[in-house]
Simulated assay, not measured.
Amino acid sequence: MKIANFGVEEWLNKYEKRAKIDISQSSISAFTLEELLNLDGTSVEEFFKERATLSLDYGWIEGSEEFKRLVASLYQNLTEENILQTNGATGANLLAIYALVNSGDHVISMLPSYQQLYEIPKSIGANVDFVELKEEKNWSLDLEELRAKIQSNTKMICLNNANNPTGTLLERSDLLAIAEMAREVDAYVLVDEVYAPLGEGDFVSIADIYERGISTNSLSKTYSLPGIRIGWVATSAEITEEFRKYRDYTMICGGVLSDELAIHALKNKAAILRRNKKIVAENLQILKNWVESEPRVTLVAPNFVSTSFIKLDIPQKDEEFCLDLLNETGVLLVPGSAFDRPNHARVGYCCKKEELLKGLELLSDYLRKFDK
């Protein structure tokens, strides 16, 4: 099996630890362990004292019953039997594609998108077609173009909602139309939903509106807990049962302590979302104000999610620019080329406010060299 290098992950793996100011990440500012536990007044000492005799065995293979119940409550029409715990949303995406896509199948993906959603099908031997998101159309998915790409043998449509890196959203009406298209050829619709919006937009999970819809998600982005590596896949009982067989080959369990921390987060969901809505709203306004004042940057504003994609008006390739920027200022971006969209860069604007302000200031100062 051959697979392309994973552009964004390869870039971050190589450079993120060198950054002094990291405005590249797509999560909302991560919690410390203490901050997470303190959401309901629990101290670190209390949490671990209560679990001092907890056996560090394999734990719950599919995720604990409480974890699955709490995740199921995030959906309209699912129960805990429709939930499987995974190693982040990347593990959920891998599981779904590995279980359902075969060599010779036809798959449709959006572009740009999270590279996993189209490179894994390619590596299996599927034929992948793309519906390209266009900046001049606000990075929106063209439903008529999608319909034209669907074939009688289309096995899966792979989407990212909201989209990474652009932050744009497919709303309920769009997803209902996509589900109807997929239903005509009995295709699966896999939607990576880690960037559920924290503000405007009529968001709905694909698993709640389509019988062959597969929702993947995690606590990494909206819930600010990428370090515990807990995600899930949510779908119909029939598809979940199929996934169980393949899951045995890709993951045993998520870890008993990670499961406990995930439960604590989900129990305190309301507090987390209040905190993160505030971060998104305030930092998005900072980003918009900066874009308005920066002549070499334009932006289609993200839909209250934690990732954004600026266009750079510079006479230099984006990857070279991002590397030079890092070396000379310590500011880290992800070049658009990592998403097959050159002349752009991903800005993770939901970091700490002071880090965002400083990063944007240094970025503007650095862009001035092209004005000479």
Rank of each mutant, 00 (worst) to 15 (best):
Y75R: 08
V347Y: 02
A72W: 01
F6A: 10
N82K: 03
Y246A: 09
S27K: 12
L325T: 02
N268L: 04
T222H: 09
R69C: 05
A99F: 03
P197S: 10
R346S: 12
V194Q: 10
F67K: 01
K278V: 07
G227I: 07
T235H: 05
G201T: 04
Y223I: 09
A72C: 05
I97Y: 07
L257F: 14
S220P: 08
E292D: 15
E81R: 06
S224Y: 06
A30F: 07
Q316R: 14
E242V: 06
F67T: 03
I310E: 13
K369C: 13
W290I: 07
T329L: 02
R247M: 08
Y366R: 10
A270S: 15
N163R: 08
Y98Q: 13
A234L: 05
Q25C: 00
I108N: 02
G63C: 04
E320Q: 12
I279L: 00
A345H: 04
H106S: 15
E328M: 03
N343I: 08
E320M: 11
E292S: 15
T53H: 14
F370M: 13
F309Y: 11
E260F: 08
P295W: 13
I239Q: 00
D318I: 00
S215D: 14
L94A: 05
D174A: 13
L94D: 01
L37A: 12
R69G: 06
S43T: 15
L117P: 02
S308Q: 03
I83C: 04
L133I: 08
S258T: 13
W290Y: 08
L367S: 07
A196D: 08
S293T: 14
Y58P: 04
A301D: 02
M181F: 15
T79W: 06
P165F: 05
L39Y: 13
E200V: 15
F370V: 06
L284K: 12
S215T: 15
E16C: 12
N87M: 06
L266T: 09
L175I: 01
